[in-house]
């Protein structure tokens, strides 16, 4: 009797539950997941986006691995990873460590460091382009103080340094985010650990290497893996500041996909590159989930 009474409404609830989840699920599936999967299908076709797609098997992939543009773009993505897992992480960790001990000014500095992160990358990129303008930008300031070497550098026009110029701007935009992540992790560290270590006579360096580092290790690992994943996907700053140029000096996978899809009308080839990009990003992400689940051993 009792059992029957409770079982009745439960059954109705079960159905209702799916009505809560299905709309969000379907919306995402139809407009994100399904199109993404269809990219895999399109990657086996030679297609300009308008006409009839022609099946060419692995042709796009074969072309890609022989394409010097693709190799260049992938290399730039790897350089991007190299830059971003070192500079922002180092700056972020160092400043977070210092700032975590401040009281009055902590909020203010955090606000300033984080500010570029909330600004539209398209806007910030363009503004920095103006600052890097060879005639009317910072260069005239460099010349005014006698640094003619710096003052005559073509920051966005020299193919040997253009990638680093854009990376510099993206670091400006990004590293405050990493700082706040580390700051959050540092504030989670149990203060009694420090107290008891100090009672036992540990010095500042020992406190840092024996307590701080191990406690923030999980955050550190997640940040590094996340950066690797985001670096495979980077687009906005490069597209707005250089469009991948000059030539293809600052191309990355995203700009290559964009150009092939929307200015060269090589939809099939662009899809194939996007499949490779997705595999790289999703694999990195999967590694992160596994690491997160298993915990980080130090």
């Amino acid at each position: 009797m009792q059992k029957g009474l409770t079982a009745q409404p439960r059954k109705r609830i079960r159905w209702a539950v799916y009505m809560f989840v299905i709309p969000a699920f379907l919306f995402h599936f139809i407009f994100i997941t399904a199109p993404s999967l269809s990219s895999i299908y399109f990657s086996f076709f030679d297609w300009n986006g308008i006409g009839v797609p022609a099946y060419i098997g692995a042709g796009n992939y074969r072309e890609m691995f022989a394409d010097s543009e693709f190799i260049k773009a992938l290399t730039n993505n790897l350089k991007w990873i190299g830059i971003f897992i070192t500079i922002p992480v180092f700056l972020g960790l160092l400043t977070a460590y210092w700032i975590s001990k401040l009281k009055k000014t902590q909020m203010m500095i955090r606000t300033i460091y984080f500010m570029p992160y909330i600004i539209a990358s398209a806007t910030a990129g363009r503004i920095w382009c103006s600052y890097f303008n060879p005639y009317f930008g910072f260069n005239s300031a460099f010349k005014a103080i006698g640094w003619t070497g710096l003052g005559s550098t073509l920051w966005l026009g020299n193919k040997n340094i253009v990638l680093y110029t854009v990376a510099f701007v993206d670091v400006w935009h990004f590293w405050g985010f990493i700082m706040v992540m580390f700051l959050g992790a540092l504030q989670q560290v149990d203060p009694t650990l420090y107290e008891s270590a100090m009672v036992e006579g540990a010095n500042r360096r020992q406190l840092f290497t024996k307590i701080t580092i191990p406690c923030i290790m999980p955050t550190f690992v997640f940040i590094v893996i996340s950066i690797i994943m985001w670096s495979f996907l980077t687009f906005d700053y490069i597209w707005v500041m250089t469009g991948g140029g000059p030539g293809n000096a600052s191309d990355v996978l995203s700009t290559l996909i964009y150009r092939n899809a929307y200015s060269r009308y090589r939809t099939g080839y662009a899809s194939a590159i996007s499949v490779i990009q997705s595999i790289l990003a999703i694999t990195t992400y999967a590694i992160m989930q596994v690491v997160k689940k298993r915990g980080v051993d130090v």
């Binding site: 989840v21 995402h28 997941t33 199109p35 899809a261 996007s274 990009q277 999703i282 999967a286 989930q289």
Partner: peptide
């Protein structure tokens, strides 16, 4: 569903930019 959305976060926008366009 939780796993689906967790995985969904990893789908790069460039993988669906072209098909969604069409």
């Amino acid at each position: 569903f939780v796993a689906y959305f967790l995985m969904g976060m990893a789908i790069p926008s460039f993988s669906h930019l072209i098909p969604t366009y069409y």
